[in-house]
Simulated scan of single mutants.
Amino acid sequence: MSTFDLSTSPPGKICIIDHVKDLLSPDTISNRLRDLGFVPGESVKIIAFGPFGANPIAVQIGSTRFALRRNEAARVIIRADK
């Protein structure tokens, strides 16, 4: 199954989190995303993109919504839900 990053997902499509990638060592942003619930197996969907360069990106995990910068969302690797 192919994976892609959350920043490229179309709005409304429900996807499954595969992993959060670390760009640095340690990567405090990736660690914070995992602390917030961006963990493997969770479903996630993009609610909307912001008006200026698609920033921020509104995403939903369960009943919780977050606003992520595009570079933060790019760390979240997802796969399409069946």
Results as ranks from 00 to 15, higher is better:
residue 5 D to A: 10
residue 7 S to K: 07
residue 8 T to N: 10
residue 8 T to F: 08
residue 9 S to R: 03
residue 9 S to E: 11
residue 10 P to L: 08
residue 10 P to E: 09
residue 12 G to S: 05
residue 12 G to P: 01
residue 13 K to Y: 00
residue 14 I to F: 02
residue 14 I to R: 14
residue 14 I to L: 15
residue 14 I to M: 12
residue 16 I to Y: 08
residue 16 I to E: 14
residue 17 I to T: 06
residue 17 I to N: 02
residue 17 I to M: 07
residue 18 D to I: 13
residue 18 D to C: 08
residue 19 H to Y: 14
residue 19 H to V: 02
residue 19 H to E: 13
residue 20 V to R: 04
residue 20 V to H: 01
residue 20 V to L: 00
residue 21 K to D: 03
residue 22 D to E: 15
residue 23 L to V: 10
residue 24 L to W: 02
residue 24 L to C: 04
residue 24 L to I: 04
residue 24 L to F: 07
residue 25 S to E: 11
residue 25 S to D: 10
residue 25 S to Q: 09
residue 26 P to H: 00
residue 26 P to A: 10
residue 28 T to E: 12
residue 28 T to L: 15
residue 29 I to C: 02
residue 29 I to K: 01
residue 30 S to L: 08
residue 32 R to G: 04
residue 33 L to S: 01
residue 34 R to F: 03
residue 35 D to K: 06
residue 36 L to M: 15
residue 36 L to A: 13
residue 36 L to P: 06
residue 37 G to C: 13
residue 38 F to G: 03
residue 38 F to M: 08
residue 38 F to A: 00
residue 38 F to P: 01
residue 39 V to W: 03
residue 40 P to S: 15
residue 40 P to K: 10
residue 40 P to A: 15
residue 42 E to L: 11
residue 44 V to E: 00
residue 44 V to C: 01
residue 44 V to P: 03
residue 46 I to Q: 11
residue 47 I to N: 03
residue 47 I to A: 05
residue 47 I to V: 15
residue 47 I to F: 05
residue 48 A to D: 14
residue 49 F to R: 12
residue 49 F to D: 09
residue 49 F to A: 05
residue 50 G to I: 06
residue 51 P to F: 12
residue 51 P to D: 12
residue 51 P to I: 13
residue 52 F to Y: 14
residue 54 A to F: 12
residue 55 N to V: 13
residue 55 N to M: 10
residue 56 P to D: 11
residue 57 I to S: 05
residue 59 V to H: 04
residue 59 V to Y: 05
residue 60 Q to I: 08
residue 61 I to A: 13
residue 62 G to F: 02
residue 62 G to N: 09
residue 62 G to M: 03
residue 62 G to P: 08
residue 63 S to G: 03
residue 63 S to H: 14
residue 64 T to D: 14
residue 64 T to E: 07
residue 65 R to A: 14
residue 67 A to I: 08
residue 67 A to P: 00
residue 68 L to S: 08
residue 69 R to S: 06
residue 69 R to K: 12
residue 69 R to W: 04
residue 70 R to A: 09
residue 70 R to D: 06
residue 71 N to D: 06
residue 71 N to A: 08
residue 71 N to G: 01
residue 72 E to G: 05
residue 73 A to K: 01
residue 73 A to G: 07
residue 73 A to D: 06
residue 74 A to C: 09
residue 74 A to P: 04
residue 76 V to L: 08
residue 76 V to C: 05
residue 76 V to D: 04
residue 76 V to K: 01
residue 77 I to Q: 05
residue 77 I to S: 02
residue 78 I to T: 01
residue 79 R to W: 07
residue 79 R to M: 10
residue 79 R to Q: 15
residue 80 A to W: 09
residue 80 A to Y: 02
residue 82 K to V: 08
residue 82 K to T: 05
